[in-house]
């Protein structure tokens, strides 16, 4: 087209664009991977009621060391979220039940569907552990569709 030949360079714009791109790469230098923490800690999650449904639920976590001994004295936080942006996650702190078991008291499934349960544990020795569980098919209120059939998951 005729105007293509007439167009004159506008270098300033492209310098700004390039600088923005470089700045973005520099400002965020690190990959944002989630750390899982020590691998010698085994974590098992149970959800009650099972099958899970929208409403109050109790999530119980059992923490074991590599030798099977219960992990005592940990501070364990549970975060429930879903795969769609925009919902406020459900975040609660568990209470210890003894023998390495920790349970939530006021956890609520706020929507039907597939949930992601993120467990963060601060161990008594200062180490931190994070595990993620998928809980598929949390049923809507009054709906009997089973969630995770076993109701128990291991990591």
């Amino acid at each position: 087209m005729a105007q293509c030949a007439k167009r004159r360079p506008r270098p300033l714009v492209w310098v700004v664009v390039a600088l923005l791109a470089v700045a973005t790469a520099l400002v965020l230098p690190a990959c944002r991977g989630q750390t899982a923490g020590p691998s010698d800690i085994q974590m098992t999650m149970q959800v009650a009621p099972s099958p899970a449904a929208v409403g109050p639920a109790e999530i119980t976590l059992a923490l074991r060391g590599a030798d099977g001994s219960p992990v005592l004295g940990a501070t364990v936080d549970v975060e429930g979220t879903m795969n769609h942006a925009g919902m406020v996650p459900v975040r609660v702190r568990t209470e210890p039940l003894g023998e390495g078991r920790y349970a939530t008291r006021d956890f609520h499934f706020t929507m039907a569907g597939d949930w992601i349960i993120i467990v963060q544990a601060a161990l008594a020795d200062g180490r931190k552990v994070e595990r993620t569980f998928e809980l598929k098919g949390v049923a809507g209120e009054g709906m009997g569709k089973p969630a995770d059939p076993a109701g128990q998951m291991q990591h």
Binding site: V54, M82, N83, H84, M111, A112, G113, D114, K136, G137, G140, E141
Partner: peptide, 8 residues
């Protein structure tokens, strides 16, 4: 008016 449900 339907309840929302999010699944993969």
């Amino acid at each position: 008016l339907q309840p929302m449900e999010m699944r993969g």
